[in-house]
Amino acid sequence: MQQKSTQTSRLVDNLLTGDRAELEGISCNDPSGLCLLSKGTMTSANNSGIYTTLVRLAAQLQTQQGNVEVPLISIETKSYSIMVKEYDGHAVAMKVPRTAANDETDE
């Protein structure tokens, strides 16, 4: 179990570096909705089950429409977006700040 946790931690660290360094946080949940790992501003385990439920519901919508692609969910607010997607049964949520450039194009 420790090995998997170390690999997951390395994956999250890699996701928060380089051109994705502007991410405010990331959360990864197991298929049961339990938070395996979180970093940055996504450290609240209270919301972890919600992200898992969202990806499952979105997948049900996709299959009803005959589409087998895994959907990407975007939750947008004035100051940030949360992108949620399922990878191998695990819900991954990333919090991305809205930049001034994005705000200008919205007006």
Rank of each mutant, 00 (worst) to 15 (best):
T99A: 04
D30Y: 01
L57R: 05
G66S: 11
M94E: 10
V70L: 11
D30A: 07
V70Q: 12
S5F: 07
N14T: 00
G89I: 09
L16Y: 00
S27C: 08
D13H: 07
M42F: 09
D19S: 15
T105A: 08
D30P: 02
S48T: 11
S81Y: 14
A100G: 00
E22Y: 08
Q3M: 13
T52R: 15
A100E: 03
Q7S: 10
M83G: 12
Q65P: 04
N14H: 00
D30M: 05
K39S: 02
C28F: 02
E22R: 07
L16R: 02
K4T: 02
I73G: 03
L72K: 11
L37P: 01
V84Q: 10
H90E: 04
E86P: 03
L61K: 13
K78C: 08
S79G: 12
A45M: 03
T8H: 00
K39V: 00
T8A: 06
I26D: 00
N102W: 00
S81D: 08
E22A: 04
P71K: 13
I75S: 01
L57Y: 00
A93V: 06
G40A: 14
I26A: 01
P71A: 14
S44Y: 04
G66K: 13
S32D: 07
E104L: 05
S9M: 02
Q7C: 08
G66P: 09
A101F: 10
A21E: 06
L34N: 12
K78N: 11
D30C: 05
V70S: 12
T17C: 04
K85H: 12
A59M: 13
N29F: 01
A100V: 03
A91P: 02
S79P: 07
H90K: 12
M1R: 14
E22M: 06
N29E: 05
S9E: 01
L61Y: 13
A101C: 08
N29M: 08
Q3I: 09
Q60P: 05
I26T: 01
T8K: 04
T43N: 14
N46D: 14
P31L: 15
I73V: 13
S27F: 01
H90W: 08
T41W: 14
K78M: 11
M94C: 13
I26C: 02
G89Q: 10
E76H: 12
P31Q: 14
V68A: 06
S44L: 05
C35A: 12
T77A: 15
L11D: 01
N29G: 03
S9W: 02
G49H: 03
L36D: 01
T53F: 08
S32M: 10
D106Y: 07
